[in-house]
Nucleic acid binder design. Structure first.
Length: 477
RNA sequence: CGGGGUGUAGCGCAGUUGGCAGCGCACCGCGUUUGGGACGCGGGGGCCGGCGGUUCAAGUCCGCCCACCCCGACCA
């Protein structure tokens, strides 16, 4: 542990981010450049993300399976856009068991190819469809610049892979899962996100269309926080995923894939975190309530600890922890748990024992303003409401921040200055050249063409030609 | 791969004209403390990134190498 304060967010955002991850013990750097160790507190958060998502996957008819880490190199080469997109960042295994392999194996950067291969074996008839499989796993992409959670050589994620009889069904699946991610982000993580379609240049290698949820981080940069791809028949044709329809005719399947990774932890950190450290959304927080006993001597300690012991039943429906360390002071514990983002703290001292109450403090409102005395009477209900209130307030705060940093520049000159202070929401003709010009001039890329469009038409912010859609331009992680 | 920077205790750093390797935090022990990052006393911990050179003597000077960080090109 470390007594120093975090570098303030406003002073150096990325330094703040890195320090927070270390101090909150979410992750640590591994001996290999660009790899990280997810520490227990970080992994517990990931487990909660997993179960929240997994429930939503199951509710929409999906099942889990596990596909292998190693993929024959030749598989990647079967889909030409796919291999073009991924070959620069592949980790390749050339040796095994002491001798050179006949065919190099790639460590999966994503599993479309090997899953496509298996689907072609499994799918024979329209009766086999749809296939709705998800896998929880890890993938490796050899990135040049890395940052904990946001971009690491190896990361953990889930990838759903589905096969359908018709384009319509595949399209519906793609949108359904985009919606699942959107609901998860908002309802579980309190992260406001904008669901939308990616531009052609930002599209997944091998997809027909890519959709994403985009979130604004505390420095106004955008973070793609989850993606859903309509793969059309690209992979079906490359891997001969075919079925016989009702008329006994061979048809290619329509496939989708969708993923959300440990990057989302980065989204949580950078959406909610403050100068005191991490702020976790109550539904995902590994510890929702921390109880800090306060006493001056052994006699008081005995009374306080007994009081806390009796409190445990009342709190059984929450994830809570009693910090009974004797070697640090209460003040230290406050700061310590604030760094770790625990949503609610209950301070219990002799005064509370006497009055049959506890002092609550909410993480999202630091200091005295967030403190409130709670009576033991109906405590469980009070805390349940408090956690809900914290969730809502975290969401509203993040949304207000985002909305106040989205601008509608009047012309291209204004767009350029807008990029320095937030996102630009502008009409765009769809031409990649305009996109490239913006990137060249401002380093901002198109983030997504939101599903929610104003309608009508106007002039492209870059070239002035007719545009039918608005797009977000922003710097991104 | 280009530009910049840093390597000294777990972390953050100081180390002068070359002369016993130090400080703060953390860690261990004892005591006093405990409602917003406690204090005192006593301890443990080092291949000074590596290799070579200059020198009676190198953390310090010279050469080469390595690693990591920041900025760019690439990206969930």
């Amino acid at each position: 542990m470390d007594n120093e304060k975090l570098t303030p967010r406003s002073e150096n955002f990325s330094e703040w981010y890195n320090q927070l991850i270390q101090r909150a013990e979410l992750a640590d750097n591994a001996p290999v450049r660009g790899c990280m160790v997810v520490r227990p507190h970080g992994w517990a958060l990931w487990e909660n993300i997993q179960s929240a998502l997994d429930k939503r996957f199951k509710d929409t008819g999906h099942v889990n399976a596990a596909f292998p880490l190693l993929i024959p190199m030749s598989f990647l080469q079967k889909e030409k856009e796919h291999v073009k997109g991924f070959s620069p960042e592949l980790a390749v295994v050339t040796h095994g068991g002491g001798s050179e392999l006949e065919e190099p194996l790639v460590v999966r950067p994503t599993s479309e190819t090997i899953i496509g291969y298996m689907y072609s074996k499994w799918i024979k008839s329209y009766r086999d469809l749809p296939v709705l499989i998800n896998q929880w796993g890890n993938v490796v992409r050899w990135e040049m610049r890395t940052r904990p959670f946001l971009r690491t050589l190896e990361f953990y994620w889930q990838e759903g892979h589905t096969a359908h009889a018709t384009e319509k069904e595949a399209d519906e699946e793609t949108m359904r899962m985009l919606e699942v991610y959107t609901r998860f982000a908002i309802d579980e993580a309190a992260v406001p996100v904008i669901p939308g379609r990616k531009s052609d240049t930002e599209r997944f290698a091998g997809a027909v269309r890519t959709y994403s949820i985009e979130a604004m981080m505390g420095d106004t940069k955008a973070l793609q926080s989850g993606t859903s791809h309509l793969l059309g028949q690209n992979f079906a044709k490359a891997f001969e995923i075919q079925y016989l329809d009702e008329n006994n005719t061979q048809q290619f399947c329509w496939t989708t894939s969708w993923g959300l990774s440990t990057r989302f932890i980065g989204a949580i950190i950078m959406t909610h975190g403050d100068d005191q450290g991490l702020v976790l959304p109550p539904k995902l927080a590994p510890i929702q309530i921390v109880i800090v006993p306060i006493y001056k001597n052994d006699e008081e300690r005995g009374k306080v600890m007994l009081f806390i012991e009796n409190l445990k039943g009342e709190l059984s429906s929450f994830r809570f922890k009693v910090d009974d360390r004797t070697e640090v002071t209460p003040g230290f514990k406050y700061n310590d748990w604030e760094m770790r983002g625990v949503p609610v703290r209950l301070e219990v001292g002799p005064r509370d024992v006497e009055k049959n109450s506890v002092m609550s403090a909410r993480r999202d409102i630091p200091g005295r303003d967030g403190k409130k005395i709670l009576s033991l009477e109906g405590l469980s209900g009070e805390i349940s409401n408090l956690l809900k209130e914290i969730h809502t307030s975290m969401y509203e705060k993040a949304k207000a921040f985002r909305d106040s940093h989205i601008f509608d520049p009047k012309d291209y000159e204004e767009l350029k200055s807008t990029i320095e202070k937030g996102w630009a929401f502008s009409w765009w003709c769809g031409d990649g050249a305009c996109e490239a010009k913006v990137k060249e001039d401002t380093k901002a890329t198109t983030r997504c063409i939101p599903l929610d469009q104003p309608g009508g038409k106007d002039n492209c912010i870059v070239c002035g030609k007719e545009a039918h859609e608005k797009v977000y331009f922003s710097k991104a992680y």
